[in-house]
Amino acid sequence: MVLALLFAAAGAMKVALSQEALLPLMPWVDAVPMAAVRGIGALEVLGAAGLVLPALWPAAAPLLPLAAGGLALLMAGGGALHISRGEYAESAGNAVVLALAVLVTRCGPGPHRGRTGRLCGARTG
């Protein structure tokens, strides 16, 4: 849930705020067209919805790994951008969120045939 809130808040800021307002918070926005920043924000908001919706509506469970996988791809791209700009602390943050998104993709709630082992915890039945 915390991961979803993080993406929803960051995405909403990217969609709603001007480049000038985002610049002190996210210095990378000067290197990316604002249309791309808005698109990234919209994808983050949609990804956050895809993380939360399955908990509210069980029929939406297939959205969870898709949303988490999409967010993992966004974080990989964000990390690459930060590394190319020498923003290593930010890329470390991307790496942590990327790892969490991959973990949700791989081990999220719901039935997981064949998804057992140390990473996800042994599941029986």
Rank of each mutant, 00 (worst) to 15 (best):
L64V: 00
V37M: 10
A60R: 06
G93V: 03
G70T: 01
R113E: 12
A76D: 06
P109M: 03
A76M: 15
A60E: 06
A48K: 10
A72H: 12
G69D: 10
I40H: 11
L53E: 00
R85Q: 15
V37S: 09
I40D: 15
L51A: 01
P27G: 02
P62F: 01
G50V: 11
V102W: 11
G114S: 13
R38V: 13
L53V: 14
L43A: 15
R106E: 13
N94A: 14
L71I: 10
G110I: 01
A59L: 09
G41S: 08
A92M: 14
A68S: 14
L71K: 09
A55C: 01
A42T: 14
W28A: 04
P58H: 06
S84W: 07
L63Q: 07
L100D: 11
P62V: 02
L53H: 00
T116Q: 12
L74D: 15
P33D: 14
L53T: 05
G50F: 11
I83H: 06
P58T: 05
P54F: 06
V45H: 10
A80V: 15
G47W: 04
A55N: 04
L53Y: 05
R85M: 15
G86K: 04
G117Y: 10
V37G: 05
L51M: 03
E44P: 11
M26A: 13
G69W: 08
L25N: 05
V96M: 09
L73M: 15
L98Y: 09
A42K: 07
L53K: 00
D30T: 06
A67R: 04
L53P: 00
A67P: 07
G78C: 05
A89M: 05
A36Q: 10
V45M: 12
A59H: 04
G108V: 04
A101N: 12
A36W: 08
L53W: 09
A92N: 03
E44H: 08
A49V: 15
A80M: 12
G41D: 06
L63V: 03
L25W: 02
L66P: 01
A101K: 05
R118P: 11
R38Q: 14
W57C: 07
P58E: 06
P62L: 02
D30R: 09
G77Q: 06
L25C: 01
A49R: 00
R113N: 07
H82K: 11
A92I: 14
H112A: 14
A61P: 00
G110K: 02
A80C: 04
L74S: 15
A31S: 03
A99N: 02
A101R: 04
G110C: 01
L71H: 11
P111Q: 07
G110D: 01
P111C: 03
A55I: 00
L43R: 11
I40C: 09
G50P: 13
A80S: 09
A68L: 07
A48L: 10
A68C: 08
L63F: 14
R115K: 09
L103S: 10
A89W: 04
A80F: 08
D30V: 04
V96F: 08
A72S: 13
G93A: 05
V102H: 05
A89N: 02
G47T: 02
A92Y: 09
E87I: 02
H112P: 00
I40F: 13
P65H: 09
